[in-house]
Simulated assay, not measured.
Amino acid sequence: MEEIYANGSFSNISVVNGRGSSSSKKWLIVALISLGILSVGLLIGLIRLGVHAHAVSSSAAGLSDTKDNLTDRLQSSNDQFSAMTKERDQLNRIKVNLTDSLQSSKDQLSALTKEKNSLNAKLTELSNEVTRLQSLSNKICPAGWRMFRCSCYFLSTTSGSWNKAREDCRNRGGDLVVINDDDEQKFVVALTERSAWIGLRKETEGSWKWVDGTALSSGLKKFWGEGQPDNSGGKEDCVQIWGNSKTWNDDKCDANIQWICEKAPM
Score class of each variant (00 low, 15 high):
D79S: 14
N231G: 02
L133I: 06
N12D: 04
D65I: 09
M1D: 14
N128W: 03
K86I: 01
A215D: 15
S232C: 11
S110I: 00
I33T: 07
C152V: 02
S245W: 03
G62Y: 07
N78Y: 07
D181P: 09
D230S: 06
I260V: 05
T85M: 06
S207R: 01
I13V: 09
G233E: 06
W259D: 02
I260Q: 02
P142Q: 08
K67F: 10
D72A: 15
A83G: 05
T85L: 09
S161H: 01
N256R: 02
L220V: 08
K116H: 15
W208N: 04
C150Y: 13
K25W: 05
L28K: 08
F148Y: 08
K86N: 09
L119C: 02
L32V: 12
G45L: 12
M266S: 15
Q103N: 15
K26I: 12
N17V: 13
I241D: 06
P142E: 09
A53E: 08
E262D: 14
V30P: 00
Q258N: 13
S195L: 03
D65T: 10
L112W: 08
E236T: 12
T158Q: 12
W145S: 04
L133Y: 05
C141F: 01
A143I: 13
V211H: 04
G233S: 04
T157G: 10
Q108D: 05
S77A: 05
D251T: 13
S245E: 14
M266L: 14
V211F: 08
W162G: 00
A55S: 07
I179D: 02
T99K: 07
I33G: 06
V178C: 06
K222E: 15
Q103C: 05
S159W: 00
T85Q: 13
L133W: 03
I140E: 13
N256E: 06
D65F: 02
T158E: 15
P142N: 07
D168V: 04
Y5C: 07
G45H: 03
S217D: 15
I198L: 10
A53D: 10
A196C: 11
S118K: 13
K114N: 08
Q134G: 02
T71D: 09
R48G: 07
V188K: 01
R170M: 11
K209A: 10
L91H: 06
A121K: 10
I241K: 00
E2I: 07
H54E: 06
L123T: 03
L91M: 09
D251E: 15
E236Q: 13
G234N: 10
S104A: 08
E193T: 03
N138L: 13
V177T: 02
L109I: 07
A61L: 10
G41P: 00
S135V: 12
F148E: 05
A6K: 08
E3T: 07
I47G: 10
V30K: 10
L112C: 03
S218V: 05
R48Q: 12
L43H: 06
W242Q: 09
F148M: 11
C152R: 03
D250E: 11
E262N: 06
S39V: 05
Q108A: 07
N17F: 12
A55I: 05
S14E: 11
A53K: 04
K114R: 14
S207Q: 14
I44R: 08
G36H: 00
V40M: 14
I44P: 00
K246E: 12
